[in-house]
Design a binder for these strands. Structure first.
Lengths: 333, 333
DNA sequence: ATAAAAGGTGCAAACGATTGCGAAATGCTT
DNA sequence: AAGCATTTCGCAATCGTTTGCACCTTTTAT
């Protein structure tokens, strides 16, 4: 029962609740003298406003939701960390949710967000999400949603992504510049738009700039699968001089194969990855990678969220923005 | 304005708000016929209770807070993922907070938890936390707090930890069994109780079981520092046959040194780590490690939280529980 | 037939804060 | 000293839900 409320303060001071409320908000109606008294007592009594009451009254929650397929992921955890930082600065709390790539859980999570009347939602779609109706329901409730990384294909929504097209091109350009001739490129889930974009731009850049390069494309389901693919190419087909990895998972799988075969990087095999930047530095020489920063994407997503919120009422804008990427040279290419 | 409330339902049905409320909660006072009508309309109107209103009325939030020094960490992210899973099952939401090892932020975060009237808090102390008063304030407000991983030294609090003593012993035992004779053991921040426990038990086990072993102890501040230390020992002092790493960070640093020197594992140098299990598998051969599972710790912490909550009122119990650990053999020892 | 006991429902207060509006108190003008 | 503006504050409704209590029907017992 140590909870201090406006009422308690008002009783002690013999003032009305509304006066206390206004004094604490520095309302011009209240005299400096009163304000001072109130603020001092509030501090002494450790007054902390009840968020539920405020939310109920103002219909405004100071809470954001953030849903990812999984928290344990180099990209997402830095994204989360980034958004959390900004949220705190703005006085918002963050409710974190994992969908585990399960559509039922995803919907449950959305419901939780609605029940908590979150002000906004940062959402990364789970792999299998086709039906966007739950998300559209958020829109009806005026819960601003920013989609990131894995985003719906329909238009008219707020989305932030890595500039996947340029990511593919940067990677291809780096390989061509290094004069590599026989490339094994391993991509992830072929159904995701992110994979499609990266692969298409990667391929097209080669077609455009270097006809002399041999390009083998494979898709890996997980780390083990990437290892298998790499092992097969590296043992059977000894001509491959470079392996391109679309993600950290694939890089990890490929590196297992390379270490197992005790191949020297880059003299015997070159490696290039698309990565958040952590995994590539675990190896020696560090792997050269095209940076896709969850941290930067988080900052962008947050910025966009704040714009959505400030742009309140007027017209319903929807942006699609991207984070540009760059090549970070290690010693593997 | 698509928000359905009890009031709206009551108006449509010509019943009172209280009847709707009770019908939806399956209260025995309400007739089956009425219940059916209400439930159906609620579904049709997509009724979703307003969490703020419920919290305000019941003084009970269905929200947990979870604070870690940083989200981007193999151990913490799996801990978070684990707690999130359980929370969802129980209908709780999770507010995630990072302290960034900054005491001011830590206090801000605690304040956020208080304002949101979280039901419980999972807290991992930041490195510099000496003053526990903010945490004790939580206790006054009857916010159940479970400390994990890095916990306060004072007693009478709920704590869950890895069984750090046995972790040290398991590691020492594995090294002795492998008949290693010249060990470099690198630990982390020497001020943390977790470091002290692990080091002490590690040391004592050697003193007890193997007097013939040479043991060099060092402390690394970060990844780079670990690399430096390892490089120095491995180049100057060629007799070291095993490196023990207290954490993933240190393992990463050490592996950089080993890869740089192109030393063969385990023929030229053996490695043993304490780890969550992810990093060790990135290398070939996989590193042998003593498992400290953030996932398991999360499950334990959650269980303890639920016990705290159910044990409501009666007596104020405080438990200190631990997760046992085990050796996971790779090929590095 | 009548009183008592269920059964079904509604009233109204409460949770803690915000806010439009009105009222009292003060100061100023002439 | 009377009138008016300004400053300072309180009243009361409201947000959506829960819940103790009272009320009105039925049914059941006598």
């Amino acid at each position: 029962m140590t909870n201090t409320t406006l009422k308690k303060i008002s009783e002690v001071l013999g003032l009305s609740i509304s006066t206390i409320s206004r004094a604490l908000k520095n309302h011009p109606d209240i005299s400096e003298k009163t304000k001072k008294k109130v603020v001092e007592l509030a501090k002494a009594l450790d007054y902390e406003p009840n968020a539920s009451a405020i939310q109920l009254r103002t219909q405004h929650s100071k809470i954001f939701g953030l849903m990812v397929p999984t928290i344990s992921n180099f990209f997402y955890d830095s994204f989360i960390a980034s958004v959390e930082e900004e949220s705190r600065k703005e006085g918002y709390s963050l409710i974190i949710l994992q969908s585990s790539n399960n559509i039922d859980i995803e919907n449950d999570n959305l419901k939780l967000c609605r029940q908590n009347r979150v002000t906004g939602l940062f959402a990364c779609l789970s792999t299998g999400t086709k039906d966007m109706s739950s998300f559209l329901k958020m829109k009806e409730l005026e819960i601003k949603t920013i989609f990131f990384d894995i985003v719906p294909e329909i238009t008219g929504l707020n989305k932030v992504c890595m500039a996947d097209t340029s990511v593919g091109e940067i990677a291809a350009e780096a390989i061509i510049e290094a004069k590599k001739k026989d490339i094994l490129a391993i991509f992830g889930n072929a159904n995701l738009s992110i994979t499609k974009k990266r692969e298409l731009s990667f391929r097209q850049f080669f077609k455009l700039k270097s006809t002399a390069t041999k390009l083998s494309i494979e898709y890996a389901l997980d780390i083990e699968n990437a290892t298998e693919i790499a092992l097969e190419y590296l043992t059977k087909n000894k001509t491959v001089d470079t392996i391109f990895c679309m993600s950290d998972e694939i890089l990890i799988g490929v590196m297992k194969a390379i270490q197992k075969l005790k191949l020297n990087i880059p003299s015997e095999i070159s490696v290039l990855a698309i990565s958040n930047g952590f995994i590539p530095t675990l190896f020696y020489p560090p792997i050269t990678y095209v940076e896709t920063s969850g941290y930067k994407l988080g900052k962008l997503a947050f910025k966009q969220m704040m714009e959505c919120l400030s742009n309140n009422g007027t017209q319903e804008l929807a942006f699609e923005t991207t984070v540009e990427s760059k090549l970070v040279k290690g010693g593997s290419l």
